[in-house]
Design a protein around this nucleic acid. Structure first.
Lengths: 262, 262
DNA sequence: CGGTCAGTTGACGGAAATCAAAAAATGTGG
DNA sequence: CCACATTTTTTGATTTCCGTCAACTGACCG
């Protein structure tokens, strides 16, 4: 029934178990992402119980899928390392990237409405996730008010990111979309404790194009123009924000006619 | 322009209470929308309890707000009659329409992430909502597994609509976006038991343009072209789908180069 | 070394934004 | 109900941004 690539579920080649199991066994309590996926006040006892639910997953390779469109909802995933994209494919084969997910961000809510996933979730590179069986999580959440609240909050955040995405797509000019995109990524990196001016893109130009509703060439040219204007410096997927204020201006001022040269 | 309008919360002029209170007091049990906002198996007793939570609201007039950006989350709303739009406003005054909400659809989830609403919710015409205090709903949901599930399901549906919106905005050609828009509305009308080929638009061209990321003139022209092609017939906000198959083709076939009858 | 792939750059045409104004619909007061 | 004012929608002319096609560069890899 499956297509070509196996989902992560199905893969358990003994060879890959050479990875450091100890590192996978780190508990939620000691996880630096804890405050992102569980930022509420959850006491030690509850935390231990959550921890017992979480299946640590071995690393995924580039292109591996966490789940695919049509799969029944079974688990929630927390990106732990690396990055993911979620992709909706229409029956004619056209695909639309719905979101990118960096460490601390959750995946899998797209199945809440129908019980079936509405998109594919694919690792953009070597990555690692925590998997939480949804059934168990829901049950436990019912008993712990703070966790219940927290579940709704992370769902809400996911919706907030979708809203930001729509606002990006609503912008008329490619420059604004790309600026907004870089700004958003930068802020999310900052929340992770990374340097916000150093934006290393985990995805290719094609993915950015799909996400922003732009042709790949336009993405490339727009990044080039931002570089010419001294806002960023680009080396392949390595982007450095050199003029943060200018980027903010593009994001907020939005329609600023002045593209500099003149 | 509507910044000075009071939210519905603040309005309680005695004069407006002349509206038929009996009709407002109709219970959830007898509501034709019940299966839309509560499609799960909720038994009679639970239904009664839900019913007791729901505050029926008097009609809203065109332009009145249910809530505005920055308001704390207090209630969930179910559109009962009429239609609503949710609008995000950037600080520079640019606005982006995030969604339209017809009877049976819920509003207010946009505050789940931060506790504050991320957008304004405005009545597109004379309308009516049911209001459910979120605090109470959450508490009750904790006790009733089926309701808990159902709450997540309606949230999920809301996310599904957001996803569909992103897919609309991802389409390159105006014709596809408009076709998708009409198709989506038609399907939602069908779910309400209305004739799906009769699509009466509750919103103006400007709102459609914002929603679809198109200029108002483009919306108008595209509707005109669809009419020329015999797909629909347009009289102001009254749209009739005359060739449902052709509309489907535009929606699914997507890339169909030929707009003339093929 | 050639092969593939990701990204960049250039030229060009077309789809949609913009500017402008008419036409239709809606509302208002007499 | 009509005349008038305002808003909404349509239509037309022009511009421009971006998508498409194409060729080129550089990186990676066996």
């Amino acid at each position: 029934m499956q297509r070509d690539l196996p989902t992560a579920h199905e893969m358990s080649t003994p060879a890959s178990n050479v990875v450091d199991l100890a590192s996978l066994r780190r508990s939620c309590a000691s996880c630096t992402l804890q405050q992102l996926c569980l930022p509420s006040t959850v006491d030690a006892e509850d935390l231990a119980r959550i921890d017992s639910m979480v299946k640590k997953r071995r690393p995924l390779r580039r292109g591996e899928l966490l789940y695919r469109q049509g799969d029944p909802m079974q688990s929630l995933f927390v990106a732990r390392e690396g990055a993911f994209k979620t992709v909706a494919l229409s029956k004619e084969g056209e695909s639309q990237i719905l979101g990118f997910h960096i460490p601390g961000e959750l995946l899998g809510f797209d199945a809440l409405g129908s019980g079936e996933h509405q998109c594919d979730a694919e690792a953009l590179g070597t990555a690692e996730v925590c998997e939480v069986p949804f059934e168990q999580l829901e049950e436990f959440a019912a008993q712990v008010p703070s966790l219940r609240r927290q579940l709704l909050r992370v769902i809400g955040r996911s919706m907030d990111r979708d809203q930001a995405h729509v606002e990006m797509l609503g912008r008329r000019h490619a420059t604004e979309r790309v600026a907004l995109f870089l700004h958003s990524l930068s802020e999310r990196y900052r929340a992770l404790g990374r340097r916000p001016e150093q934006v290393d893109l985990p995805m290719g130009r094609e993915d950015i194009g799909s996400y922003l509703g732009l042709a790949i060439e336009t993405v490339s040219r727009t990044l080039g123009k931002l570089q010419e204007d001294g806002v960023i410096s680009v080396h392949g997927r390595r982007v450095q924000i050199t003029d943060c204020a200018a980027l903010d201006r593009l994001v907020h001022g939005g329609d600023e006619r002045r593209t500099d040269h003149g």
